[in-house]
Simulated assay, not measured.
Amino acid sequence: MGAVRERLPEGRYGRSADARADRQLRIAAVVLGSLLLAGLGWFGWHYVVGSKISAEVIRFAVVSDSEVQVHLEIRKDAATKGVCTLRSRSEDGAEVGRKDVAVDESADRVDKVYTIRTTARATTAELIGCTAR
């Protein structure tokens, strides 16, 4: 036979401490969850609306031990000017080249090939980001 747990009569002694703690924990979880969701929404909205210039690497080619060509497509407002930063890495992940590309064209879409000079043979090229001026 197992141990029998004695139950207190309902309503006679008020709410138990466990029930009160559970209720407080639920309220705290709802408040913190709401704050987290609101924060994520604000950051997402700020990222999408605040981004006046964006770009993506279409393709890249390692031309030699000291050069990588990157085909970059940039989307922006026609009046916006900015800078995009490209980086090239070697096989072990070390950065071997970096280039800041000025985006001064008055078009809303810029499609160009840029050359990154490297200090060693690169295996990849990536876009770090773009910022509007």
Rank of each mutant, 00 (worst) to 15 (best):
residue 26 R to W: 09
residue 16 S to G: 14
residue 85 T to L: 13
residue 126 E to D: 14
residue 124 T to A: 09
residue 108 D to Q: 04
residue 129 G to D: 08
residue 43 F to G: 07
residue 9 P to H: 07
residue 60 F to H: 10
residue 77 D to A: 04
residue 39 G to F: 11
residue 74 I to N: 11
residue 80 T to Q: 09
residue 120 A to V: 00
residue 123 T to F: 05
residue 115 T to D: 07
residue 4 V to W: 05
residue 19 A to Y: 05
residue 20 R to N: 01
residue 76 K to D: 07
residue 27 I to M: 04
residue 15 R to A: 12
residue 52 K to G: 14
residue 51 S to L: 03
residue 35 L to P: 01
residue 45 W to P: 05
residue 7 R to Y: 14
residue 129 G to Y: 13
residue 88 S to M: 03
residue 8 L to E: 12
residue 33 G to I: 02
residue 106 S to L: 07
residue 11 G to F: 13
residue 131 T to N: 10
residue 56 E to L: 11
residue 91 E to W: 03
residue 19 A to T: 11
residue 66 S to Y: 02
residue 2 G to E: 14
residue 105 E to Y: 00
residue 30 V to W: 09
residue 11 G to T: 10
residue 20 R to C: 02
residue 14 G to H: 09
residue 37 L to A: 13
residue 80 T to W: 02
residue 11 G to I: 03
residue 124 T to Q: 12
residue 106 S to K: 07
residue 36 L to A: 15
residue 121 R to M: 02
residue 70 V to M: 10
residue 120 A to Y: 00
residue 38 A to F: 11
residue 61 A to C: 02
residue 21 A to R: 14
residue 37 L to V: 05
residue 118 T to I: 09
residue 14 G to C: 04
residue 40 L to H: 08
residue 46 H to Y: 13
residue 39 G to Q: 10
residue 118 T to F: 09
residue 9 P to L: 10
residue 35 L to C: 10
residue 59 R to M: 09
residue 38 A to H: 09
residue 5 R to H: 13
residue 75 R to V: 14
residue 51 S to Q: 02
residue 38 A to K: 01
residue 12 R to M: 15
residue 83 V to E: 12
residue 22 D to M: 09
residue 124 T to Y: 06
residue 32 L to I: 08
residue 30 V to I: 12
residue 52 K to Y: 14
residue 12 R to T: 13
residue 110 V to I: 13
residue 10 E to N: 03
residue 16 S to R: 05
residue 50 G to R: 09
residue 60 F to L: 03
residue 96 V to W: 00
residue 59 R to V: 05
residue 101 V to D: 01
residue 44 G to E: 07
residue 82 G to Y: 02
residue 42 W to T: 08
residue 21 A to E: 10
residue 100 D to E: 13
residue 16 S to H: 07
residue 106 S to T: 11
residue 79 A to G: 04
residue 62 V to M: 00
residue 40 L to F: 05
residue 75 R to Q: 13
residue 70 V to N: 11
residue 47 Y to K: 09
residue 3 A to I: 06
residue 68 V to L: 01
residue 27 I to K: 06
residue 80 T to Y: 08
residue 86 L to K: 00
residue 107 A to S: 15
residue 26 R to D: 11
residue 85 T to V: 14
residue 60 F to S: 07
residue 92 D to A: 04
residue 72 L to V: 05
residue 101 V to E: 00
residue 82 G to L: 11
residue 127 L to G: 08
residue 104 D to V: 12
residue 2 G to Y: 09
residue 74 I to D: 06
residue 28 A to K: 01
residue 62 V to Q: 01
residue 123 T to E: 13
residue 76 K to Q: 15
residue 13 Y to V: 15
residue 98 R to H: 07
residue 127 L to Y: 14
residue 110 V to W: 00
residue 115 T to N: 12
residue 1 M to S: 14
residue 25 L to D: 06
residue 13 Y to I: 11
residue 49 V to F: 12
residue 92 D to G: 04
residue 122 A to C: 01
residue 24 Q to M: 10
residue 131 T to K: 12
residue 71 H to Q: 13
residue 44 G to I: 05
residue 44 G to P: 03
residue 80 T to E: 13
residue 105 E to S: 09
residue 41 G to C: 10
residue 23 R to Q: 10
residue 104 D to F: 12
residue 117 R to N: 03
residue 8 L to I: 08
residue 108 D to T: 00
